[in-house]
Design a protein around this nucleic acid. Sequence first.
DNA 1: GTCTATATGTGGATAGAC
DNA 2: GTCTATCCACATATAGAC
Lengths: 221, 221
Amino acid sequence: MSSVSASDGPADVSAKPTRERILEVAERLFANQGYNGVSLRRITTEADANMAAVHYYFRSKEALLKAIFDYRVQPLTQERQQRLQEVLERAGDQPPKARDVLAAFLGPGIRLSATPQGAIFNRLSAICSVDPDPVVKQIVFGVHDAVAEPFVAALRRACPELDGPTFFVRLQCVFGCMMYLRADNGRVDRLLPAADGEAARRDYNATLERLLDFVEAGMLA
Amino acid sequence: MSSVSASDGPADVSAKPTRERILEVAERLFANQGYNGVSLRRITTEADANMAAVHYYFRSKEALLKAIFDYRVQPLTQERQQRLQEVLERAGDQPPKARDVLAAFLGPGIRLSATPQGAIFNRLSAICSVDPDPVVKQIVFGVHDAVAEPFVAALRRACPELDGPTFFVRLQCVFGCMMYLRADNGRVDRLLPAADGEAARRDYNATLERLLDFVEAGMLA
DNA sequence: GTCTATATGTGGATAGAC
DNA sequence: GTCTATCCACATATAGAC
């Protein structure tokens, strides 16, 4: 992203090295049309490169997707882990508050939508997390499992009164809410006044609070 | 589904007419690997037919997917509409209860998972609803919009105190929960004891109640 | 109605020049 | 490091025999 010269903006993409141009274009196209919906030909054409460059830099299409996720997920994971740690330290020996745990996990992802590039990755992440292709599934689940485990353990401690299957269903609901918001697939826009969707998207911070209100109430019901 | 002769079960698929064999196999394969992840060759091979039969009966791959949805969604829509009407009639001039509206919309879909064929269609429906392919999106959104609109209007009346953007986000959460449960993508199974997931899946009726507890609390928070 | 054979297009991957 | 040209597998769709 941050390249050698001061860039004029996302449009001035040809100033960056070929490898980064490919990464950016692939991320955007995958986010809009899915991994299997975009050909390497299309990516290289729009990145002002050629097919061979992909195999030179990434070896394969699959490895290109993996590179995108590795690059983007690392800072996300770090922030999540740090926030969770703070929550757990504040709680001391007591179980943490459900809302705090949820905020530590959901916040960094939702806040990504503050930047256009982050919003693109959010859509990519959400789309890939339900992609039926085992290649895609393995990459996405793999990069997220490490950070999801301590979060789930903390949330479990925050809701000790729930039985196992209930916690299972509710955790699915939490993932579903997060996924759907990050995917932002336009379904609800077809059913509600356009102004409401625009207002919600304008303030991602309020969106996070609204999401937390929803999932906190759901987990504590 | 209900064919001429008393079938021995889903394995005895060759007793049915070619058109129905293709429909069933395509539904199952699409549900597991997505529309673009399955070739007509694979479908016809497993349905004990050949490529040309698909074009004879359905004209194209896209029309085959549409036929699956038309066939499955019709009874679902009818049940949803009837339950919603009952809820509205019970409420009279008063706004309906949010939980009743949610139950009318979510119940028929979740209960589909009671039968293996229904569970397959639920996965298909969920996967396709986030499929980035515009062809797929148009088919799925199209068949569901008609029934979603009165449901959304009723839910809006049940939550009059929410401002527009908040209702927008919360409705996205409701769709996200429904979608994720119906997709049942195995993500949460990787993070929780296997017994909890199995127990939850065994009793789809309890799953529906757990889902309703979650989304009702979320909408009324 | 059901098949084989094939037309036609596009995908990922690679060889080899520069 | 970057390109052109090409290989090969597989996709949808269709023509035409039976």
